[in-house]
Design a protein around this nucleic acid. Structure first.
Length: 266
DNA sequence: GCCCAGGTATAAA
DNA sequence: TTTATACATGGG
């Protein structure tokens, strides 16, 4: 089934799917391929519509997945208050939306991301899917935590995740036995939720913040990674600047801006 | 070969 | 309490 969604002109599909919030969407000519809720999905921009080919035909679902109802543009004055760096970062990355991704996939992906680079993160996740997901045409679904919870650490050897394998298993098990309860996390305040996620071995403040921001859509989470540290050290005096309620969005703008200007941080 | 990558756990100071 | 080191792997 093909559906078409109306979009505001500022929405940027390419930036949204390639800004470091997700790792499995890939582009071939003008079409993005991915798996959402276990369904092979193709997405492209066609005549100013967002065209989606998927078994999932619920427009409301897709408007939520791509966060099309939220008005990112109205926040530009708020972002600009934080100075010229942010003005540049926002203007160069205008149109990024935060997806409503599956929380388990998000958590797992960012566990894999630790002390790792993006190409290698992607290849580990791909091997994880190929070995433990379901085959859907030419692409594999993200493995279910219920399956992963039953595995031993050695079973993950083929994905070459190194020391992160034990963390993946621990995460799956704690989610499975509700030691970490995603439904409860949704109802918690951000601080308690971050704390709850960090009960998982291998999940610290950074992975927890990424999971809350990208998996639970909490815009008040600010993942501090090496790039953000560099930006803050260079352009903001105090290391504990308060970027306010939407600091998670500021993070993604600064993250992408700093990575596209590495020469500034030599 | 060496360096380092969307960090975190653990040991040592 | 703060600071140092190991961790698995492979792309640059």
């Amino acid at each position: 089934m093909v559906i078409n969604l109306t979009i505001e002109k500022s929405f940027d599909l390419d930036k949204t799917l390639d800004c470091g919030q997700c790792f499995r969407w890939y582009k071939k000519s003008d079409t993005w391929f991915g798996v959402v809720s276990g369904n092979l999905t193709k997405v492209k921009i066609e005549n100013n519509f967002l065209q989606i080919e998927s078994e999932i035909t619920n427009k409301k679902f897709w408007r939520s997945y791509f966060d099309l109802e939220f008005d990112y543009e109205k926040l530009i004055p708020y972002f600009s208050k934080f100075g010229s760096v942010l003005i540049k970062a926002v203007s160069e990355n205008r149109g990024i939306h935060i997806l409503n991704q599956n929380p388990w996939e998000t958590l797992c992906s960012f566990i894999i991301s630790q002390n790792n680079n993006i190409p290698r993160i992607k290849s580990i996740i791909n091997r994880f899917c190929e070995n433990f997901g379901e085959k859907l045409g030419g692409i594999y679904s993200f493995p279910d935590y219920k399956l992963i919870a039953k595995l031993k650490i050695e079973d993950l050897e083929p994905i070459k995740a190194g020391f992160r394998s034990k963390y993946i298993i621990d995460a799956a098990r704690k989610i499975f036995n509700l030691e970490v309860d995603f439904e409860k996390i949704k109802t918690m305040n951000t601080c308690d939720a971050l704390c709850a996620l960090q009960k998982i071995n291998g999940v610290g403040p950074k992975v927890a913040a990424c999971t809350m921001l990208y998996g639970f859509h909490r815009f008040d989470c600010f993942p501090v990674d090496v790039w953000i540290k560099k930006v803050i050290e260079k352009y903001f005096k105090n290391l504990d600047v308060d970027f306010g309620k939407y600091r998670g969005l500021i993070q993604i703008y600064l993250f992408n801006w700093s990575r596209s200007h590495p020469e500034l941080f030599k």
